[in-house]
Nucleic acid binder design. Structure first.
Lengths: 225, 225
DNA sequence: CCGGAGGTGATACCGGGGTATGAGTCCGTT
DNA sequence: AACGGACTCATACCCCGGTATCACCTCCGG
């Protein structure tokens, strides 16, 4: 099964170079070339490639927007190619935008030719890959973003009992004492008692600070309801 | 300048294989081998390698914990090697733990030998790299984690005024109304007025829910004080 | 068998937080 | 000049949330 590749880049030389390089591979077919984002989206729709090599900086419509359009599910269009972003310099804003848009990879154009070929195969297989410098940033960001949560979050919870931890989580979900009581089938006073102990154990003042603690400690995580 | 490498793996055969492979490179020196995490940490401290190849699963002390100890800044120890994690299967729990601990990469042992060598050089250079399947997951996670926050987060804040947004952030830092008033040089009642408006605009009930909103909307982010 | 930890709950107090209403100043736009 | 929006603050009210104290029950390990 050959891999169908679409090349989108505003520089003719670059297009030609990549096309020659990839077409020389027995398992890769270059099914089209586009010189700006708009044309790239069009060709992407009509030639349904497996992989789109997309330059970031282009006239008319940049690679980011083109990638979004190809990767977003526009009603009616079924086909969804993998997108491999290419750039001359590595500007992290672009990287994050592209990854958020659903790109499968991000490579620098100065990478060895073999890397490009390998990248196309990896992406076609459903995996992903990034230039080393990009990987470094992504990891750093990832590690910084949520450094808390060790394996057993209970350990971070200065000796909270299971029940107390449960109450803490409900507070972090925004419930009132009454609602928590209803939820756990308890008297409201019991809930208060638990909260009081949690506050003292964690050395905090009120439920607002409990919510903060819950997020910082990873008891709850942004974006999971 | 040669790259000093320490190999930590409980299987003697694997150690020998990697050692032979790497030592054959003119720019790489294998400065030590350890067969469990504890020994790995010791040798890491004494031989100050540039790169540590660390198996994940090991007796005595697993690779994750060993990586943490090598990467954490224990008072007195200056040296901080790069850690490249290795695993036979790719279990994502391990991956995230390792990256959070500060590892520079994560490779599967079934990768081609050339990849391993290239990986050592990349990591030694301060960049990072991940196995393609791992990259895919990390990207997916990254994209899922925070698809919200476009450039101007103020837009997400249902028409909050600057002052209101300011108050919201202070609430999300755990301040009481009195403290907020002091902080902004305002009467406490003014703070209350602002909060009242914010609550109504965001359709929330109390400050605890405001804190939740702040975290969910990215007004504040876990782990940045 | 006893003691401690975890869980439950009642009574009581009070202060901070949230609500309602009204009003003053300082903008920028019309 | 007139107007609306943002920001400011006062007075007043009420209730939820947090604190304190005491008590009872169950389970488990010594």
């Amino acid at each position: 099964m050959t891999i169908r590749v679409l090349i989108v880049d505003d520089q003719a030389m670059v297009r030609a170079g990549f096309a020659a390089l990839l077409a020389a591979q027995s398992d890769i077919d270059v099914v089209g070339q586009a010189e700006d984002g708009r044309q790239g989206v069009e060709l992407g729709r009509s030639t349904h490639p497996d992989v789109v090599l997309m330059d970031v900086r282009m006239p008319e419509m940049d690679g980011l927007e083109a990638a979004r359009r190809l990767l977003d599910p526009p009603p009616g269009v079924i086909h969804r190619p993998k997108v491999l972003m290419l750039t001359t310099f590595d500007v992290d804003d672009y990287v994050y935008e592209a990854l958020r848009a659903g790109a499968s990879g991000f490579l620098l154009k100065d990478a060895p030719p073999d890397d490009l070929i390998a990248a196309v195969r990896i992406v076609a297989a459903g995996d992903a890959l990034l230039a080393p410098s990009v990987t470094r940033r992504l990891i750093a960001d990832f590690a910084k973003q949520r450094p808390a949560q060790r394996k057993d979050p209970a350990l971070k919870l200065n000796g909270l009992t299971p029940r107390e931890a449960e109450v803490l989580e409900l507070i972090a979900r925004g419930l009132s004492n009454q609602e928590i009581a209803a939820h756990l089938v308890l008297a409201e006073q019991t809930v208060k008692t638990h909260i009081g102990r949690v506050l003292s154990k964690l050395d905090l003042r009120d439920r607002a600070q409990l919510v903060i603690f819950a997020y910082e400690a990873g008891v709850v995580v942004p974006g999971d309801q």
